[in-house]
Design a protein around this nucleic acid. Sequence first.
DNA 1: CAGTGAGCGAGCTTCCGCTTGACTT
Length: 805
Amino acid sequence: MIKNLVIVESPAKAKTIEGFLGKDFVVTSSYGHVRDLEKKNNGVEIENGYKPLYTVPADKKAVVNDLKKLAKTAETVWLASDEDREGEAISWHLKEVLKLNTEKTRRIVFHEITRSAITNAIQHPRYIDDNLVESQQARRILDRLVGFEISPVLWRKVKPSLSAGRVQSVAVRLIVEREREIDAFTAESKFKVTGIFDFVDEKGKLYKVKAELGERFDTEKEAAEFLEKVKDAQFAIESVVKKPSKKTPAPPFTTSTLQQEASRKLRYGVSRTMMIAQRLYESGKITYMRTDSVNLSDEALASSKRVISKDYGEKYSKTRKYKTKSANAQEAHEAIRPTYFDKESVDGSPEEKALYNLIWKRAIASQMADAELEKTTAKISISNSGLKFTASGEVIKFDGFLKVYIESSDDDENGKDSEGLLPPVYEGAELKYDNITATERYSRPPARYTEASLVKKLEEMGIGRPSTYAPTISTIQKRGYVDKEERQGKERNYRVITLVGDNLSAVDKTEITGAEKGKLFPTDIAMLVNDFLLKYFPKIMDYKFTAKVEKELDDIARGERNWVTMLDSFYKPFHDTVEDTIENSERVVGERILEEDHNGKRISVRMARFGPVAQITDLNDPEAKPEYAGLRSGQKLETITLEEALDLFKLPRDLGEYEGKKVVVAIGRFGPYIRHDSKFTSLKKEYDPYTVQLDEAIVMIEEKRKKDAEKLIKVFEENPDYQLQNGRWGPFLKVGKQNYKIPRDVDAKELTYEDCVKIVEEFEKGGGKSKSKAPAKKTTAKKATAKKTTTKKAAAKKTTTKKKK
DNA sequence: CAGTGAGCGAGCTTCCGCTTGACTT
C-alpha cells in the first residue's frame, strides 16, 4: 500500500524529487506522453466534432501497466507533469488511462527542482485545467491533420515517402530561400586601405600605429591614385577620444543557445549536443536540458554567488535575473545550469567534460559583474586629402565576467582581429607611414545555415519547441530535403597595391572562396516540394502561421475560444485546398529546358525516379530513346547551365584498351575514377576526366596495383577467399566481402588458415554485426546470446580488449 | 560504393511534442 504516488515526466527527475519528499511518497515517471492519436483514419473523427481517437503506443504499454498497478494501491496520486500545455495534457491522459477519480487525484506543478519548490507545490494542489488540455488537443489535432493530409498529396504529385508539416516545411523553406539568395548573389569588390604608421614619443621610442581609411574605393584606379597622392602628404593625429564602455554577460543556456554555442565552440551537431546533455542530466550534473527558460532558482542564484565570491572575489559577483525574450516560451523549467556550482568540472567522457564546462562557465558568467572597457579612437589627418585614417584600441579596465566566458558569434570566423592597446598618441603628433596598402575585398553572400543557426532562426520565429529542434533537423535530412555537406571552395584572385617608401607596387593574390563545412544545403527535391507547397498551401508555409495558431491556442487556454470552432475554421478551407490540389495540380517534374533545339536535339533537365537527370531528346526521331545522365553533387536543376549539362554526356569516356581490357573514365559518387578490368582507381587531382589520356591512366592503374599488392599480406591456399590485408587501421582479415578484426596482440603474418577460420567463427558466435549478413534467426534469442558472448568466451576477450583503455 | 531512368500497379510512406532506451561504429 502506497500512501502517495507522485508521477513526473522524467525518471531522472523522479529520483531527485524522491529525495526531497518523505517516506510517505513514492515518485515515478510517465516517460513523457502516454497516449497519442492512433494512426488509422488520421486518429480524428472530423464529422464527429473532431473527436480524437487516443491509443497507448506499443512502446508505452509497459509503462502504463506499471503505473496502473501503482496507482491502484495508492491512497493519493499526485500528477506532477510540467506546467505547460503539453504537461497539463499528460496529466489529463494519465488521469484517463489510470482511471483516477477526482477525490484521490491532485495536480501539482513546479518549475524548478528544489526542495522548497517541491514542498510548496505539495501544499498547493489544484485541479486539471481543462482549457489548457483542450488547447493541447487542438494543437495535436491540427498538426496531425496538416501532416497527414498534405504528405499523401506529395506522394502522388512529387515522390513517395515525402513529408510535410507545420514545422518541418517552413524549416526547409528557410534553407531553400537562403540557397536562392546565395545563387542570386554577385560579389562586388572594393578596395580597403590600411596603413602602418610610425610614431615616436618624446623619449624617442618608436611605436607602430595600425589604422584604416574611413573610405573604400570602388576601383583599382581610384585606390592607386589615392596611394600615389599621399606619397608626399603629412600625417598627423587630429584627435584622440577615449570612451568608456561595458559588456554584459549572456544569460544562462536554454536548449537553443546551448546548441548554438556547442556548435560554435565545440563543433557539435545539435543531436550530439543533446545526447551529451542528456547523459549529464541523468547523472545529476546539470538541470533539465530541454528548456526555453533563462530563469535560475533562488537557490541557484545564492550558490553561484557563493562560488563567485570565493573563487574570484566579491566584486566579481552580480546577481542577475533574466527574462525570456522568445515569443512562445512556456518556461516549465529552469535554464540549463550545473546542479552544483562548486563543481567546475566533472568526471565523464571528454565530450561530457567539455559540454559541462561550457554550461558551468556560461551559468557562472551570467551571475558576474559587467566588464569595463575603454575604447580609444584616434583620427589621423592627411595634409592633401579630406579623407582620414582611424586607429582604435580597446583596453579592459575590469574584466568582470570575461574572466570565465566569452560568447561566440556566428561571424567569428571572419571576425575582426581583437583590438589591443593603442600607442600613447596625442593630438597634433606627427606620423610617418611605414606602408599603406589597398586590398581588394569582396562582399560576401548570406551565410548558409548550420544546424544550430537554423535552430536559432526557428526559435526566433516561435516555430518548434526545445524537445523538437534536434529531431526536426534530422527529419528534414532523413526525408532527403537537406544535406549537411562540405564543399570545396574556389580560388579567386584579388588585387593588392602597396606603398612602401616612394615605391608603389601591385600584385595579384589568391584566396579561397565559398568553402563550406557542416552547412545545410537544400536538395532539388526540397526546392520542388517547397515551390509546390508555396503554390498550393501558402497559409501553412507562411512564417507567421505558427504564431497565429499559437495565439488562438492561448485563447483556448484562457477559455476565451472554443477549440472545436477554432479547428473547424482552420480545417474547412484547408481540406478544400487539399481536395482541389489532388484534383487539379500537375505532377511535379521540375523540368527545365536548357535549349529547345541544339543541333536537332533538345537539352533539358528534370527530376527522375533516381534523382535529377539531364536529358537529350532527338527531335528528328520520335522513336529514339532519350539519353540520360545524372547530375553531379553540387549541381542543381535550377542553376545548371547548358554547358555543364552537355559535359555530363562526355562521360564515361572510353580511353582505349590496356592488356586487352577497356579503360574507361567516369565520375562517381566519390569523384572521378578510372575503371579497368572491373577495378576502380580514383583519378588523381591534377587530371581532368574530360581530357585525361590512356597513357596517363595506365600509370595510375599501375600505381594502384602496386599499392594493392602492398596491401595484401597473405592469401591462403586452403581457401583463396581468405585474405590478410593491410588497411587504414592496421591488418585485417577479409573473407569474400566481409572484413574481420584481428586481435591486437597478434602478428598478422604469423596467422594460419586455422586461426583465421577461428576468428570468423568467434565473430559469428558473437552475433555478427554486419549489415549484409543474414540476420539472426530469432530476435528473441538475442539476449541469451549476448550474455554468452560477454561471459563465456575467453578467446574473444582478446578481440575486445580494444574497448578498454 | 561507382551501370539504372519505361513499367501490370501490391502495399507502404506521413505530423509535432513529451520522454528514454537498445542498438551500432
